[in-house]
Nucleic acid binder design. Sequence first.
DNA 1: TGTCAGCTAATAATCATTCCTATTTGAGAA
DNA 2: TTCTCAAATAGGAATGATTATTAGCTGACA
Lengths: 137, 137
Amino acid sequence: MTVETAKKRIIESGLKFTHQRMVVYNALQVSADHPTAESVYEKVKEANPSISLGTIYKTLENFVRAGILKKFTDDVGVMRFDPMLETHSHLYFTDTQEIKDYKDPGLVLLLKKYFEENQIDNFEVEELSLVIKGKTK
Amino acid sequence: MTVETAKKRIIESGLKFTHQRMVVYNALQVSADHPTAESVYEKVKEANPSISLGTIYKTLENFVRAGILKKFTDDVGVMRFDPMLETHSHLYFTDTQEIKDYKDPGLVLLLKKYFEENQIDNFEVEELSLVIKGKTK
DNA sequence: TGTCAGCTAATAATCATTCCTATTTGAGAA
DNA sequence: TTCTCAAATAGGAATGATTATTAGCTGACA
Ligand SMILES: [Mn+2]
Ligand SMILES: [Mn+2]
Ligand SMILES: [Zn+2]
Ligand SMILES: [Zn+2]
């Protein structure tokens, strides 16, 4: 079932279906955190020892271009890949280094409304993202 | 005058005053953009050809630790140094690659208030920063 | 069954940043 | 003023993440 879903998703995004793409796809769907290319590599390599790190990078990049994943650069400059496509913010845990999703439609609306009412001179807002740093309470 | 101000600022931050520190300090005070270590190096090297890139990095880092500068990682993962110490946001110009300051106390209050009223489960917010991407209108 | 465009593995190259170390500098002690 | 020593610097090597290159492989399709 997971295999079929993955296959379907990959093919309908316009990419050819391959074993490597499937395992990378699945690794991301089950990940709660926001894995780096390196951590996807480590995970995938367990069952697929011959896969190369370059393929991981290229596959992730292809998925981003195809709209299957998003990517962002974390606060130390490392690329993170994110299977959640809807607009959301990230919580940076300064104690554990985790990055968790924070989805809040109310906040999105609030910000959108704010910038509609308070235009910035000579600037057209295209994308807003809030970086939230803090720690476990 | 600039020299004396720089000297004063560096010494009162607890650092020894050196020529290298002065020129790096001044390069940042006059910069409108948010320079990288490399761009500070290029600028400073004109009048100080023997300064080394390692010294630029170390000096900038010392200034950050001393509270004279702030630093952040831009959207492609490169370190940026910022002489504006007060809380503010950054406008990322997707067309020109510029990063400009956007200071808006109203927005800061709005966000602060929002997160006081809408607590996040098991998370204590320490720092909020809004990344604003867009282009010249 | 043969072809060919697209994939992949392996490895080299790049880029930003940090580390290392021999040498220099300069503030304070004598 | 001269001496001394910790701190600072220059220059280059090392590191880590990412991208580029390329030769060989694979699988859909004629
Ligand atoms: Mn790095
Ligand atoms: Mn990098
Ligand atoms: Zn996310
Ligand atoms: Zn700024």
